[in-house]
C-alpha cells in the first residue's frame, strides 16, 4: 500500500507506493486513482484539480482556494484504509502492428545490440502482453511494460527530429506508440494505423492507465486499408 504521503508544494500531495517499477505496485496506484476519481465525481471531496498516476506514485493537485494539503492527506489516508482489496481490471486491447522494413527502421539496430535475429525480436514483441503503467509525455502516449530483458536496447544517443505517428517503439524495458508525429529517441520496430488520441471524440484517449495491450501482425496492405471506425465497432 502507500509507503508515505508527503506534500508537493502548497497545492500538491504525493502518495508514494515504493521505489520499484513493478506491475503489482502500479496496480495499487491505479486502484487508488480510480477510487479517488469516483469520489471526486460523487463530490465527496472538493478542491482536487488533477490526479496523476505514474509507475509508483499518485500525485494530487488541488486548488488552495477550496482546500489544504492537510485535508487532502487525511482524506487519502481514510480511503486508503477502506480500499484494501478493491481492484478493477483494465481493458484488454489487441492492436495491429505492421513490421514492414519501411516502418521498422531500427529493427537492425535492436538486433545488433541484443544479438538476436530480427524474427526472434518481433516474435517476442508479439508474444508480450504489455501493461500500461501510465499515459503522459503527449496526450494518449502509453508507457507500456515489461519487455523481456533479452530485448533491452537503450535509446538512440541523438533523438530523431521526427518520428511518424503510429510508430511502435521500444527502449529499455518499455514499449510505446506515438499518437502524433513527434521528436524522440526510442527504437522504432513498426507502425500501427490505430488512432490513439482524438480530442473531438467522446472518448478522446483509446487507452487508460491499467489497460493491457497485445499486438498482432498485419501486412502493409492491411495497414493502408485499416479503418478506425470498424476497429472500434469490433471492440464494443
Amino acid at each position: 500500500m502507500i509507503k508515505q504521503i508527503t506534500c508537493y508544494g502548497d497545492s500538491g500531495v504525493i502518495c508514494d507506493f515504493g521505489d520499484e517499477v513493478k506491475k503489482e505496485i502500479n496496480i495499487k496506484v491505479i486502484a487508488l486513482f480510480k477510487t479517488l476519481q469516483q469520489k471526486i465525481i460523487n463530490q465527496e471531496i472538493k478542491g482536487i484539480k488533477n490526479c496523476i498516476p505514474s509507475y509508483n506514485k499518485l500525485i494530487i493537485f488541488f486548488d488552495l482556494t477550496n482546500t489544504t494539503s492537510k485535508k487532502i492527506i487525511s482524506f487519502v489516508e481514510s480511503i486508503a484504509k477502506e480500499q484494501t482489496n478493491s481492484f478493477s481490471e483494465g481493458k484488454q486491447w489487441t492492436i495491429p502492428v505492421c513490421y514492414d522494413k519501411e516502418f521498422g527502421i531500427d529493427q537492425q539496430r535492436v538486433a545488433d545490440y541484443t544479438k538476436l535475429s530480427i524474427d526472434t525480436i518481433l516474435e517476442k514483441h508479439l508474444n508480450t502482453i504489455f501493461y500500461i503503467y501510465m499515459l503522459g509525455f503527449a496526450p494518449g502516449f502509453p508507457y507500456m511494460g515489461d519487455l523481456e530483458n533479452q530485448l533491452y536496447c537503450p535509446r538512440l544517443k541523438t533523438p530523431r527530429v521526427k518520428i511518424n505517428r503510429g510508430s511502435v517503439i521500444i527502449a529499455e524495458n518499455f514499449c510505446a506508440i506515438y499518437p502524433y508525429d513527434s521528436p524522440g529517441g526510442w527504437n522504432i520496430l513498426g507502425n500501427t494505423p490505430i488512432e490513439l488520441f482524438n480530442q473531438d471524440s467522446s472518448n478522446p484517449s483509446l487507452f487508460s492507465p491499467g489497460d493491457t495491450v497485445k499486438f498482432y501482425q498485419i501486412s502493409k496492405d492491411e495497414h493502408q486499408k485499416f479503418n478506425m471506425k470498424d476497429f472500434l465497432n469490433n471492440v464494443s
Binding site: S11, N50, S54, K57, M134
Partner: peptide, 10 residues
C-alpha cells in the same frame, strides 16, 4: 528519477 506527475511551479 522514475517519471512521475508534475505540478505547476515545480
Amino acid at each position: 528519477i522514475k517519471s512521475e506527475g508534475i505540478i505547476r511551479g515545480s
